[in-house]
Design a protein around this nucleic acid. Sequence first.
DNA 1: GGTTTATTTAGCCAAATGACGAATTATACC
DNA 2: GGTATAATTCGTCATTTGGCTAAATAAACC
Lengths: 103, 103
Amino acid sequence: MSSVFKALSDPTRRRVLELLRDGPQSAGDLAAKFDVSKPTMSAHFGVLREANLVISEKQGKSVIYHLQLSVLEDALLGFAQIFGLGAPDAADQKPSKNQSVES
Amino acid sequence: MSSVFKALSDPTRRRVLELLRDGPQSAGDLAAKFDVSKPTMSAHFGVLREANLVISEKQGKSVIYHLQLSVLEDALLGFAQIFGLGAPDAADQKPSKNQSVES
DNA sequence: GGTTTATTTAGCCAAATGACGAATTATACC
DNA sequence: GGTATAATTCGTCATTTGGCTAAATAAACC
């Protein structure tokens, strides 16, 4: 769980996740979209993999990365819920925090 | 914005935010709840302050820290929304991602 | 003014992080 | 088998991070 937030703390890695939102991509295709070396990107992928934010699947000589949305969801919304945040949708005015979150 | 995720990447700092959820607290009172030295805690407070996740108010010889919930909300839910996450409350079954987030 | 109390700053250290180029591994292609 | 391509591992480096103790600052109290 801490590994997820650690992974999210780097802008390059957050960007990778955003790119993966549009569908699985190979390590090379992803790396091509960044200004850093491939070994560096590989290290970033490793951090994301270890946090289970992505899974990798070897296909031919490529490695395809898939986003694991559920892990991101659990971390982000799980943590948000601790603070009574989340679900800014009821009607369309924020009902603020009168939902008796504490007590 | 990146500073917020950076701040959230440390478990001690996340814990500080959780404690602050129950109301403002002095630096000393907060520090007493952790196993690290006060200077170390002061550095953590500095990171949280710089990310605007907390604000500090000097009161007598103490410094009172307040949680800035809105900043946490913007970062967490804002980022979650990029992925079509958020609001797991409609009725009570997750309607999953049929909300046509992309296309 | 001097002392205690609360917090931060200064200076240091070890470990982790993000970056690189070079070398390695693994697969495909001829 | 040999070569090209894709990705990772290795070794190195500079910077950042999180921790500490000691010193400095700030406010209250006698």
